[in-house]
Design a protein around this nucleic acid. Sequence first.
DNA 1: CTTAAATTTTACGTTTACGTTAATGTCATT
DNA 2: AATGACATTAACGTAAACGTAAAATTTAAG
Lengths: 137, 137
Amino acid sequence: MAKKGREAEKETYTISELAREFEISTRSIRYYEELGLLSPNRTSGNQRIFTKKDKARLKLIIRGKRLGFSLNEIKEMIEMYDIAGETEQIKLTLKYGEKKLKEIEEKIRELEMLREDLLTIRDILLKRLKELEKSEN
Amino acid sequence: MAKKGREAEKETYTISELAREFEISTRSIRYYEELGLLSPNRTSGNQRIFTKKDKARLKLIIRGKRLGFSLNEIKEMIEMYDIAGETEQIKLTLKYGEKKLKEIEEKIRELEMLREDLLTIRDILLKRLKELEKSEN
DNA sequence: CTTAAATTTTACGTTTACGTTAATGTCATT
DNA sequence: AATGACATTAACGTAAACGTAAAATTTAAG
């Protein structure tokens, strides 16, 4: 395979590069590896090397966290990405995936309800504000 | 005011009734009160009595939790419901509300992305499954 | 009134998700 | 080969959100 014309974006990252980019600590990244959420390769000197895949995975972890999933739940979801296995395994994974999908859709619905609540409160406050400013004249 | 024809739904609840209904522990409910998220009245004997309002509030707390908000964030959001105060206070509250609204909308977007990811994985797994079942003949 | 079931406060324990040293090793540059 | 910046593991510490057990009321039912 011929080299691409221009330098490809960048193929690997150190732990601190990723930490900076995602605004988390290196400790967190190591902790995610400890729990099995990441498995970066190592240099001859035992330092972690993160590929684009690792980076994408980290992004997923962070997104999951922000959405209120525990690291354990995130791990289970991530394992879906790694299924290479047999029919039965795939079926189980699919079933689990459907469950997670429903949970996610439920979360979306709940967020939309919360959003409605806040919008209502905003309206109420805006009205009260108008009246107050009226009576200030 | 005349009484309604039929018994109204039920006006008050004990701590264990709410705990059962929401499938949480009484400890959690007491903890939420400790943090100031709830302020139920007491009987003459000092036991908590929860009104419908308290119940609605608890529901909000639980929803917030499921969506990945901390109890502290939830508290701040709940305080918006309680604003009776002056113009400046209302303006601050409105500003904070806009921020929260944006966060919520961002969460919705992220959940939708996660949903897309899972749907993609599902498709891939379904295809792989079909091929496996084909080759089993 | 008595008793069982429910509730209260107090207080220490636990889990999750990291923070924070400490002691040591690696990499890049001079 | 030495210096400084970055990395590694190990280990103890911490905040949030409860769990759990104990001892003392309170309430509901008989």
